[in-house]
């Protein structure tokens, strides 16, 4: 499932990135590059640590050893299981 749908407390492992059909302002390639640069690569362990107040957005995600804040819109491109 996409990480963008995960609730607080969710833990999982990144399966792949799928940047097609997200409604991010970034192009597919740009979004994918940025996600990789922040450590969202296949096999990384993720945990949703915190959620914002409005629409549970954005989310703070633990990616292996660092914490990244990202909006759910962009997190839809990260497929986890």
């Amino acid at each position: 499932m996409p990480l963008g749908l995960a609730l607080r407390g969710y833990t999982g492992v990144i399966q792949h990135l799928s940047t097609k059909d997200t409604d991010s302002a970034l192009s597919d390639i740009e979004l994918e590059s940025r996600l990789i640069e922040l450590g969202f690569v296949e096999g990384a362990r993720v945990e949703v640590l915190h959620e914002g107040l409005v629409g549970r957005d954005p989310i703070a995600v633990r990616v292996d050893s660092i914490t990244i804040a990202v909006r759910r819109r962009e997190a839809m491109a990260i497929i986890v299981a």
Partner: peptide, 12 residues
């Protein structure tokens, strides 16, 4: 206008 993504490291 499309909202720019918000992607930010939350450092220790």
């Amino acid at each position: 206008y499309a909202p720019a993504p918000f992607m930010l490291e939350l450092p220790d």
